[in-house]
């Protein structure tokens, strides 16, 4: 796997144990700008754990994570300023609205003054225009997830980590998300996605990695992915094979 100093994300030798159980060991991962890597694997394989390690939400038992060349453990604040992690249940405040979350984010991250217009556009993309000022808790699960996605894209962070981003999304929103990811990739944003959907993976990924047995059991490089030619079934077979 490519490793350079200018990588947006560079993880080396990551390991995580829960008690006696080893969830991850010796995981190396590197990501350049405009790259999208999709993590695949069975339920419980450690994809979410890996995402949380990369986001700095969990301390690693061993190894190092650097975001924009900033050590996530030693300089967590600086490193986390370069990334956004959208978990399956992002911690939005139930009694505050999407606009208020965005306003707070604008203050925290020093977003450009044009953020309200950008928020409006993102909300329109996900059909949330009428929900901008509603408390999060009044939104459905899917809408709340879309609200979190809006905030992630609004942040303009160079690294966005999305854990199963298609879960709970309607078809229109899933397609909109795919287009948005591609558009942001073209602008230089790097993505780490955890997903179970082969077709969606092939649609956006520049690389894909199968998490199994606590390691990246197989990494599909761009040339590998190109060989599938968009054939999701064939890709699924290859992923299943890698899972063992």
């Amino acid at each position: 796997m490519t490793q350079t100093l200018s990588a947006v994300l560079r993880a080396t030798g990551l390991a995580k144990h829960y008690g006696d159980k080893t969830v991850l060991s010796r995981v190396d991962l590197s990501l350049q700008a405009s790259e999208i890597i999709v993590l695949l694997g069975e339920n419980g394989a450690g994809k979410t754990t890996l995402m949380r390690l990369l986001a700095g939400e969990l301390p690693a038992d061993a190894g190092e994570v650097r975001v924009m060349d900033v050590d996530l453990r030693l300089h967590a604040e600086r490193a986390r300023a370069h990334l956004v992690y959208v978990a399956q249940h992002p911690p939005l405040a139930p009694l505050c609205s999407l606009r208020e979350h965005a306003e707070a984010m604008a203050g925290f991250r020093g977003l450009a003054p044009s953020w309200p217009a950008e928020l409006q556009a993102l909300a329109a993309t996900f059909r949330l225009e009428r929900s901008l000022d509603l408390p999060i808790r009044s939104l459905s699960g899917g809408m709340a997830h879309k609200a979190a996605l809006c905030l992630a894209f609004l942040s303009r962070a160079p690294l966005i980590l999305l854990d199963e981003p298609h879960t709970g999304l309607d078809v229109r929103s899933a397609l909109a998300l795919r287009d948005l990811i591609r558009a942001r990739r073209d602008q230089g944003t790097a993505f780490v996605l955890a997903s179970h959907m082969a077709e969606a993976t092939l649609a956006v990924a520049t690389r894909a990695a199968v998490v199994a047995g606590g390691v990246l059991a197989r990494v599909f490089e761009p040339t590998d992915l190109a060989q599938f030619g968009g054939d999701a079934r064939q890709f699924e077979q290859a992923v299943l094979q890698a899972m063992g």
Binding site: A76, E77, P91, L92, A104, L151
Partner: peptide, 10 residues
């Protein structure tokens, strides 16, 4: 934690 998620200084 929401503030942290939104990008508030740690």
């Amino acid at each position: 934690s929401t503030a942290m998620w939104l990008g508030a200084p740690a």
